[in-house]
Amino acid sequence: MKKDLSSQSMDAVLQDFLGNKPSMGTPSLDLQLADTQEQAGGVMKEQATDPIPEQTDETPQVVRRISGKQRRASLEEYKETFLPVPSIEDRKPVFLSRSTRDALDRIVRMFGERKMSVSGLVENIARQHLSTYGEDIEAWRKL
């Protein structure tokens, strides 16, 4: 798995900001399960069909508060990753739903610099995705 904890929490915050439900199937759990099955050499395939027993532990989960300093650091990391104005050569159109476009436009207007656009944000998101999953995608292509 290539995502670190801070980017997972940023993903959850971004999904919440965009109005998406965070339970909409994050690929990290599926990838982790697939990696575990491959490492076990097929032993996990037999166990994967068995239902996983639910935890009956009724201890309340501790909710930790995020400090303002952590939020500012997280915002700065987000801006450095997704909001620098990219240089895009040989442009091609990409279509988005109105709700996605509006949510991205809101992010760009709130946090982006003067010359930042939704196209630039989408370019940065796509570049980050390819850098994070590029090697995995090549390996999956060969399956």
Rank of each mutant, 00 (worst) to 15 (best):
L143C: 03
W140Y: 15
G112K: 02
D136C: 03
K69M: 02
V94F: 14
M116I: 11
D30W: 05
Q8S: 08
R65Q: 09
S23Q: 12
I88E: 03
S99V: 13
L83A: 01
S28I: 13
A48I: 05
S97G: 15
P22D: 07
L96Y: 06
I107C: 06
Q128I: 04
D57W: 00
L121W: 01
V63C: 00
S119E: 06
D16E: 15
D50R: 03
A48K: 06
D35P: 01
R65I: 04
M10R: 11
D136H: 12
S7I: 04
S67D: 08
S99L: 11
L33T: 09
D50N: 05
V43R: 15
T26F: 12
G25M: 14
I66S: 10
S7D: 11
A73H: 04
L130W: 07
P60F: 03
P93A: 14
P86T: 02
E80H: 12
E138P: 00
G41N: 01
I88K: 07
D11A: 11
K69I: 05
G112S: 03
D136T: 13
A103P: 01
D4L: 05
S74G: 06
D11I: 09
R98V: 12
T36F: 15
S87P: 00
F82A: 00
F111I: 03
L31V: 08
L75A: 11
M1K: 05
E38R: 15
L14M: 10
T49P: 00
A103W: 05
L14K: 02
R98N: 10
P22G: 03
P86L: 04
K115D: 07
M24S: 10
L143K: 11
Q8V: 14
L75P: 02
D50C: 01
L75Q: 02
M110Y: 15
V94M: 11
Q37K: 12
Q39M: 06
A73P: 00
H129P: 00
T56S: 01
D16L: 15
D35K: 15
Q37R: 10
G134A: 05
S6H: 08
N20F: 14
R72C: 01
Q61P: 02
D136P: 01
T81A: 08
S119V: 04
E54D: 06
G25N: 09
D57R: 00
V43E: 12
R114Y: 08
M10H: 07
L143G: 09
Q37C: 05
G42N: 06
E123V: 03
S131I: 04
V62L: 04
V122E: 00
E113I: 10
T59S: 09
S99D: 15
M44A: 08
I107F: 11
R98T: 11
D102T: 12
L75R: 00
P27D: 10
E138K: 10
K2P: 15
S23T: 11
A34D: 09
A126D: 06
D4F: 06
Q37F: 04
S117N: 05
V63K: 01
K142P: 02
E54G: 01
R101D: 14
P93M: 12
M1D: 10
I137V: 08
V108F: 09
T36C: 11
I125C: 07
K79L: 03
T59P: 00
P86Y: 04
T26H: 08
Q70C: 02
I137A: 04
